[in-house]
Simulated assay, not measured.
Amino acid sequence: MMTMQRIYLDYNASTPIDPAVAAAMAPFLSESFGNPSSGHWAAAPAKAAIEGARSKIAALLGCHEDEVIFTSGGSEANNLALKGVYFARRDSGDHIITTRVEHPAIIEPCRFLERLGARITYLPVDRFGRVDPDDLVKAITPRTVLVSIMHANNEVGTIQPIEECAHIARERGVLVHTDAAQSVGKIATDVNELGVDLLSIAGHKLYAPKGVGALFVRRGVRLEPFLHGAGHEGGRRAGTESALLTVGLGKACELARDLPSMDRVRTLRDRFWHELQDRFGNRIALNGHPAHRLPNTFNVSFIGCVGAELLERLDGVAASTGSACHAGRIELSPVLEAMGVVPEVGMGAIRFSLGRGTTHEEIVSVGKRLGAVL
């Protein structure tokens, strides 16, 4: 039996390492192996490479170099932001505001902090997955120390009104964090335009390796370190820095400044969606905001189908589903549930996320395979 061509449409889950990123990392597999914190000749090249990478990330975010902390990924960056602010400001408040559609790397740290006495407010979203800034106004109290709202949702691609929410919070003296793992490299993420105090990056979401990320921390914001040790990263994150990984992230962030390249991806995504509409009509439904959405992402429900079962029959197509089947029972993702998507629609949800390597031929092929399967 001939295997169908493999097609990758799961770039929101992880991206391949860009060839330019791999080339930048290659010398650090065999050279510049010194500990960057040491004071001798073997340390200098590694230290210089790390600071060069920090400069490239700062240029992408529009911040100062000393406002960039390297982490092991987006999850650590989120944990450092949430726990770091909570423990640093515990004497002045114990209230954190987030949303119901956050990534588990936000939801689970919040639940952990709740066990330690923190009060967490989970804001609702509308049917498109967007927060109402008025709800944020009502939720802030004198004890609120942090607002954490993701920049763009990983499942449906909906972009949150971060600028407006940040303005509301900062007017009231509350720090603002955003999980930008999905938005960096796809849409503008200048921290001053967004108005945020903290912002998380995950390397493997923007063509860098897994195992590296970064957290922007605005000057003057105090964090309790998540990891304690020898005081690396200005005393904010212990652990010997990896020149190999940070160089990869720095190069990826340099490439990510080319946002116009996402126009091609957006065009492919829209063609794909229009083709599915022409082919299936009212048998499909879009999940997420039709306009305020990442240029590479669309989440579509195939009504009357089970997304997981449909994906299994799409031989060779890598994508993600928004529902799970447990003992014959369909369970929607928390994101679709928070959006009020009814089970009959949500159970057929599939997220297609495109990337730099996606071609028009692949889109056409997936459309044909869907037609054959349905």
Rank of each mutant, 00 (worst) to 15 (best):
L244P: 10
D258A: 09
V300H: 00
S32R: 09
A243K: 04
A44S: 07
G62Y: 02
F128C: 10
A291W: 13
E155I: 05
A324C: 12
G322S: 01
E275C: 14
I168Y: 01
A308F: 06
I97R: 03
C110W: 05
H289A: 13
H64R: 12
N282D: 15
A24F: 10
D10T: 06
A118V: 05
G371F: 00
I162C: 12
T267G: 15
E309K: 08
R143L: 14
E309W: 04
D197Y: 05
T321Q: 11
D94L: 09
L354C: 02
V212Y: 00
L268Q: 11
T15W: 00
A20C: 07
V247N: 08
K251F: 06
V21E: 06
D270P: 12
L245N: 12
A26G: 08
R172V: 12
T144C: 08
V300Y: 00
I330E: 12
C63E: 07
A81T: 00
A181P: 04
W273A: 15
I330M: 14
S37A: 14
A372S: 11
T189Q: 08
P295K: 06
G213R: 02
I201A: 05
S301M: 07
L82T: 05
G39R: 13
S365F: 00
E275Q: 15
D263A: 15
A318M: 14
T297L: 15
H64L: 13
A53S: 10
D315G: 03
L198H: 06
V366A: 00
P343I: 06
H151Q: 15
G129D: 08
I107P: 04
A338D: 03
R54W: 01
T121Q: 04
L80M: 12
V137T: 13
R89W: 10
S38P: 01
L370N: 00
L116I: 03
S32I: 05
R279L: 15
V21M: 07
W273G: 14
I96D: 04
A23E: 13
D134K: 12
S320P: 04
L294D: 06
T267I: 14
P209W: 01
D132I: 03
A318Y: 12
H289R: 11
L249T: 10
E275Y: 14
A88C: 05
V265S: 08
A20N: 07
H326P: 05
I96A: 06
I149T: 05
G73L: 03
